[in-house]
């Protein structure tokens, strides 16, 4: 999904860069609420894992491959604002050192994979999590749905940008159809990898998974109910030291 220089014209690239700068600035503010002494080292490793995961192209069909974008994965593990910064860091390292993705296209790539990939991945994850029972076993499936749709969203946005500012005289409709059909398959790979990784971390250290906080909280309250059901305080306002207080979404 890394857009090279030249696919999109200068006005489009400037506009996408401006959106990227704004999005990253917001993420820098939002990530402060997600990061503390315990989660910051994990978040750094999430970025590292996304870099590694993006190198593992998996074969799709007919001579195509796909690779992890990692937006939904990073959002569920580290929190959405931190995830925008994780994926942006990966894209900067790739563009500057690996010549993977263009330099003038960096803003476009940040929009596609860091902002839309993370944003759609996280919002879908939260929506699915709300529908599923509040327990740890729901986290990985919800992440998988978020991952799948995040890839389709990024593919759709690229097609829209190409329709607006593509430099080659190619029908935007053809590009959209081709992007969506191939990325439906790639999205399934994204969903599988995301579910596998999120599921593994949830199994070992659910406290390090941002998206598992409501499930952990529910589990904790359940365990504590006999204790907190003292006549002085209703269970809902009882002190629960292990309960995360501020999961905004």
């Amino acid at each position: 999904m890394h857009v090279p220089d030249g696919f999109l014209d200068a006005p489009t690239s400037i506009a996408t860069a401006a959106v990227a700068v704004g999005g990253v600035a917001l993420a820098l503010r939002g990530a402060r609420r997600e990061l503390d002494d315990r989660t910051a080292p994990m978040a750094g490793l999430v970025a590292t894992f996304v870099f590694a995961g993006q190198m593992m192209n998996f074969p799709v069909a007919a001579g195509t491959s796909g690779h992890l974008l990692g937006g939904a994965l990073a959002a569920v593990l580290a929190g959405p604002w931190t995830a925008v910064l994780c994926v942006t860091t990966v894209l900067i390292v790739q563009a500057l050192f690996m010549a993977d993705g263009g330099i003038t296209a960096l803003g476009t790539n940040v929009d596609l994979m860091a902002i839309v990939g993370v944003g759609v991945g996280w919002l879908v994850f939260v929506a699915v999590r709300r529908v599923l029972p509040t327990r740890l076993g729901s986290v990985a499936p919800a992440a998988a749905v978020g991952a799948f749709l995040s890839v389709l969203a990024a593919a759709t946005l690229f097609s829209a940008l190409f329709a607006l500012g593509g430099t080659a005289p190619v029908s935007p409709d053809r590009v959209l159809v081709a992007m969506l059909s191939w990325h439906t398959v790639i999205g399934l790979g994204e969903a599988a990898i995301t579910a596998l990784v999120v599921g593994s971390v949830v199994a070992v250290r659910p406290d390090l998974v941002h998206g598992a906080r409501p499930a952990l909280k529910a589990r904790t309250l359940e365990v504590r109910r006999p204790v907190t059901a003292a006549p002085t305080a209703p269970a809902s306002s009882a002190p629960a030291p292990t309960a995360p207080a501020g999961d905004a979404a």
């Binding site: 890394h2 593992m56 195509t64 593919a155």
Partner: peptide, 8 residues
Amino acid sequence: ASSHPDGL
């Protein structure tokens, strides 16, 4: 990893 071109 697969060396085929990616989706885009």
